[in-house]
Design a protein around this nucleic acid. Structure first.
Length: 472
RNA sequence: GGCGGUGUAGCCAAGUGGUAAGGCAAGGGACUGCAAAUCCCUGAUCCAGCGGUUCGAAUCCGCUCGCCGCCUCCA
């Protein structure tokens, strides 16, 4: 497959370097608050990429996503609320894992905490100091950007052309305005750890270098995150990693585009943001996944209720097909007939188109279009197929589930009825057929209406009446 | 000032040299006791604008316009 690599600014063939194992490191949350809908984009996009690599490439994926549990914002939050930094971190770490589950994103292989790796970071920073890549000022340690070869190559920046201090005041202590903090001396009351330079805490960029190496070993295949991290975060990771060691760092750098809200980036100060869990109170996880994955991951995505509603309708169309087919074939056994066999054979074409789309820089938009085409084709087959041939519909549903899997779609069951419920519903459907045969439509409609109120939909088709239970 | 993204039908959105996928919404028809669902038909002579390269461009080049992001801890 091919992926766009920010490092080379090109789409390049990708495959794991060793052992059919892909090491992925995705920059994770700073747990000072709930994730907002922008934070969710890399979670969904790279979570889906991971599943695609696992299920369609048959590669093992080591998926590491860090949790930054010490940071200026956590300290600020603590000062505001009176809660300890540790308590805040724990609370939002738990909320983060709950969100992953709610979104049906697989748990990472490892979710290391920054505070569990301070010792290693101190050793690493000491090495940088020893090698002349870092210097100490009043208990702070800074990385010497000038000493890093190729600094700026990931983000395509030449420091001489950057407007230092355009956003943040230039620190007097630094040799160069772009030198960045490796170790920050603690003020009183702040969480701190001992170091050769006094008590303090690690800077942000170092944890990813330490933890990616620790948990991925030599499987440094993909490093991913939002494109706002390209500079300075990822640039600074590369600078440190390559300054400290001659061993290669990550080969592929993947970046998702930003989420826009009403045409502009979300800002808490503008009040135009929403938490991810709030969206899940209105839309189900499949709708949310569909929405995020129906725009190419590298492009900006404009968040809107209109978009969510369209996604919801599109997902419902596929679910209806799956649900109806499963309801119809629930109690049927046998082999597909000759026409059905031809239809089944044609399914491989859809699978091939899907794989081609996903292999082309993870084009989930085209992949979704293939799924919708498959739905149309299957519906057409449903219109005409009769008898044993209809058993071929089962193959189409299996394929829909397979193709939806990486995207977090169509995996859940649709029936959910107990055997007693199923038996009672079959009985009611049977009685209602009798009523309709006698043209007692007032009674038959009453059965349908009242079942609808209970959350069970009846559809009268040429193949008989099928019932389906709406997801609550 | 530097780096980068983006502008395709009412809305969302693929397509990056060979003559415009897919979804949502809308209208018409078929089917149906009625519902629901489904099927068929209807859509951009055109891809922000202008100019250029080419047998041929939404796709390449130039200019202009609009929107957006990054330039020290924000996915």
């Amino acid at each position: 497959m091919q992926l766009y690599n920010t490092l080379t600014k090109r789409v390049q063939p990708f495959e794991p370097q060793q052992d059919r194992t892909v090491g992925m490191y995705v920059c994770g949350p700073t747990v000072y608050d709930h994730l907002h809908i922008g934070n969710v984009r890399p979670v969904l996009v790279f979570g889906a990429l991971r599943r695609y690599l696992e299920r369609f490439k048959n590669w093992r994926v080591l998926y590491v996503q860090n949790v930054t549990d010490v940071d200026d914002r956590l300290i600020k939050r603590s000062a505001e609320t009176g809660e300890s930094v540790a308590a805040i971190a724990e609370k939002y770490t738990r909320a983060y894992f709950d969100l992953l589950q709610a979104l049906r994103v697989d748990r990472p292989t490892a979710s290391p905490l920054a505070t569990d790796h301070v010792r290693e970071m101190v050793d690493f920073i000491a090495l940088l100091v020893q090698r002349g890549h870092a210097y100490v000022r009043d208990g702070d340690v800074y990385f010497r950007v000038e000493s890093a070869k190729d600094y700026g190559s990931l983000s395509g920046r030449r420091l001489s052309e950057q407007e230092a201090g355009s956003r943040v005041e230039i620190s007097e202590a630094k040799e160069d305005p772009f030198d960045f903090t490796l170790w920050k001396a603690a003020k009183s009351g702040e969480p701190s750890w001992p170091s050769p330079w006094g008590d303090g805490r690690p800077g942000w960029h170092t944890e990813c270098v330490i933890m990616s190496r620790k948990y991925l070993g030599s499987h440094l295949d993909i490093h991913a995150g939002g494109n706002d991290l390209v500079f300075p975060h990822h640039e600074n990771e590369i600078a440190q990693a390559t300054a400290a060691s001659d061993e290669p760092f990550f080969r592929f750098w993947l970046h998702n585009g930003m989420l826009h809200f009403g045409g502009e980036e979300m800002h808490k100060s503008l009040g135009n943001f929403r938490y991810a869990y709030q969206i899940l109170e209105v839309y189900d996880a499949e709708t949310v996944s569909y929405f995020y994955l129906s725009r190419h991951y590298r492009k900006p995505l404009d968040f809107s209720d209109e978009g969510l509603r369209a996604a919801q309708a599109a997902v419902a169309r596929v679910r209806r097909l799956i649900g109806d087919v499963e309801a119809e074939l629930r109690n049927r056994h046998g082999n597909a007939g000759s026409d059905g066999g031809a239809f089944s054979a044609s399914l491989q074409g859809f699978r091939a188109r899907y794989v081609a789309a996903m292999d082309d820089d993870f084009n989930t938009v085209d992949a979704v279009a293939v799924i919708q085409d498959l739905v149309s084709e299957t519906n057409r087959f449903r219109e005409t197929a009769t008898g044993e041939d209809r058993l071929a519909l089962r193959d189409a549903v299996l394929l829909l589930r397979e193709l939806g899997g990486p995207l977090g779609l169509f995996e859940s069951g649709t029936s959910g009825a107990s055997s007693i419920e199923a038996g009672l519903l079959d009985l009611l459907v049977d009685l209602r057929r009798e009523l309709r045969a006698r043209k007692a439509f007032d009674l038959s409609d009453r059965v349908r209406d009242q079942l609808a109120e209970l959350g069970v939909d009846l559809k009268d088709t040429e193949q008989g009446t099928i019932w389906s239970r709406r997801a609550s």
